[in-house]
Amino acid sequence: MKRYIVLFLALTSILASGQKNIEKKFDIEIFEYLSNTIDKESTSLEEFLVNSKPFSKWDMRPLATKKVEALDSIYTSSQIPNFIWGAFSTKYGLSEEESMSKPNKFLNEGVQNKSKLNDHFKLNIKNFNNLSHLIMESSDKIFLNQNTIQKIDAVFKENNIYWSYIIPKYSPYPISSKTKIKTNFKFSQQQNQILKLLNELNIYCAVKTSKGIFYLVDGFTDNSYGFYFNPKNQMEEDNLLFEIMKSEKIVDNYFYYVAN
């Protein structure tokens, strides 16, 4: 929580004065793009939170870099979503106390939901095994399946249109202020099969790492909770995108986890 308070205060002051001494202002460009989009589309807080979940279309957290230069300082990639939440919670009229309490409230929900979600997993273990097999066979790493948007790695499907961000050279962020339509493009049969299974299992996102698969049941800023698959029966503790707070083995090769 101390880290979050510092980041919240730093963001609100720095964005007010603008970024200095950084040649490429990718972070400021993305922030302004999101701010303008939200104003233009009158985006509700609920919709903002959905689009800002980990790995969703407004999550600007770097995916391959441990530390990045942003807002005049060096920060870990997992801190970046807190910048966005700190600024936009103010934009939506939330008090500082309300915005800072949400991450801890979310993590507590992840701990409290463990028994219920583990029961759900055990009832559907066959489908989870089928899904893990398909994802391990796939060359893709990120599979997002939300009510209004789907994503395979860098390609989104929204309103039956396939699109992706145009990422500037040297930018560490997975989103930008510009997008492009992917014409004559469709997800493959295998990709659609994976997305369908995720939907049936109430998993909004699956992320394949070099060691296993994180299945996200829910997420907020850089936090998430759900299931983790590992063929060697080991919990992954060193991934730069998941700082594991709690984990517990469910059955062989599967764990329940909460990440902050």
Rank of each mutant, 00 (worst) to 15 (best):
T221A: 15
S132L: 03
G110M: 00
I181R: 09
A206V: 04
P62I: 15
M100N: 11
K91F: 14
A259T: 02
H120A: 03
I203S: 02
L94C: 01
I213M: 03
N202I: 04
Y33C: 06
E97W: 08
F31P: 04
L63M: 14
K169Y: 11
L134T: 00
D140E: 06
L7C: 00
Y256F: 13
M136V: 01
L240G: 11
A87R: 08
F143D: 02
F255H: 09
I166A: 00
K2W: 13
Q193W: 00
T183E: 08
K180Y: 06
E96Y: 14
Q190H: 01
Q150N: 09
A16P: 11
N21G: 05
P62W: 15
V111P: 03
K57N: 13
D39N: 14
T37W: 14
Q190V: 05
I167P: 10
T148E: 11
F31V: 12
A16Y: 11
P168C: 05
K116W: 01
N260M: 12
E23P: 08
K186N: 07
L198Y: 01
K57R: 14
E237K: 15
E237L: 15
K66F: 12
N36I: 07
I135S: 03
F242L: 05
S95E: 05
F8T: 08
S139N: 07
S78E: 07
Q193E: 12
N82I: 00
S99Y: 01
S73I: 11
N160L: 04
D140I: 00
S52I: 01
L9V: 04
T209E: 13
N223S: 07
K211R: 13
K246N: 08
Y165N: 05
E248F: 09
F31A: 09
L201C: 02
N51S: 07
F121Q: 03
Q193K: 11
L11N: 00
I142L: 09
K169N: 13
D59K: 13
I125D: 13
I166L: 03
F255E: 06
M1L: 05
Y33T: 05
R3A: 00
A10P: 02
A206N: 02
